[in-house]
Simulated assay, not measured.
Amino acid sequence: MSFDLVRTELTQILTDKSAPVVEITPDTVLLNGPLDIDSLDLATLVVTLEEATGLQPFREGFVLFHTAGELGALFTKAAG
């Protein structure tokens, strides 16, 4: 999965909640960073990505990630 899908879905979440949309790069920190998202928004993002890709990188349990790029990489790794 490309980082572009993560960026697209993050932008949609921010737009839906009328939050400022800032530039999202692979190094963008997801929580406690420049994005106005909380843990519920992050959970929504993960579910949306799972539904869009059919991949479940957290099937074996939670894997720590901090940035948009790290999240994209987890989905890429799950694709095998």
Rank of each mutant, 00 (worst) to 15 (best):
L64R: 15
E70M: 10
L40W: 10
E50W: 05
F62P: 10
T25K: 10
A78G: 05
V22Q: 14
A43P: 08
T67M: 09
P34E: 15
T11C: 03
G54P: 06
A43H: 04
V46A: 06
F62C: 06
A52R: 05
L14K: 08
F65E: 04
L71N: 03
L5Q: 08
G61I: 12
P57Q: 05
L74D: 04
L10W: 01
M1I: 07
F62R: 09
H66N: 15
A79Y: 03
L49N: 09
D27M: 14
D36Y: 10
L40V: 14
G54K: 03
M1L: 02
E70K: 06
M1V: 06
K77C: 02
Q56V: 11
S39Q: 04
D16P: 08
Q12V: 11
T25C: 11
L45H: 01
L35Y: 11
L30Y: 04
D38V: 12
T53N: 02
D16W: 06
S2P: 14
V47L: 13
R59Y: 15
G80W: 06
V6L: 02
E70L: 10
L64M: 14
D36N: 11
Q12R: 14
D4N: 09
L42T: 07
L64T: 15
Q12C: 08
P57V: 02
F75S: 00
S2A: 13
V46K: 01
L35N: 10
T44L: 12
P57A: 05
A52C: 01
T8C: 07
T53I: 03
V63G: 08
E9M: 08
G54F: 00
A43W: 09
I24R: 09
T28A: 04
V21S: 01
L30W: 03
T8V: 10
D38N: 13
L14Y: 09
F58K: 06
D38M: 03
D41Y: 02
M1K: 04
L45V: 05
L45K: 06
L14V: 08
S18L: 13
N32A: 14
A19I: 11
D41Q: 01
L71E: 01
I24G: 09
A73Y: 06
A73N: 13
N32D: 14
R59H: 13
L30F: 01
G69A: 04
L10Y: 04
L42Q: 03
G80L: 10
R7P: 07
L45I: 00
L49S: 04
T8G: 04
S18R: 15
I24F: 12
V63Q: 10
R7L: 01
V63I: 10
N32S: 15
V29P: 10
G61R: 07
E60A: 13
P20G: 10
T25Y: 10
T48S: 13
L30E: 06
I13G: 05
L45F: 07
F75W: 01
L49D: 02
D38H: 12
T15H: 15
G61C: 10
T11R: 04
T28D: 07
L45A: 01
D36Q: 12
T48G: 09
T15G: 12
G80A: 11
T15P: 09
T53L: 06
A79W: 07
L5P: 06
E70N: 03
L49V: 03
V22N: 15
A73L: 13
L5W: 07
S2R: 14
E51D: 08
P20C: 06
G33A: 12
L40K: 09
K17N: 05
K17F: 06
L14G: 08
D41C: 07
V29K: 15
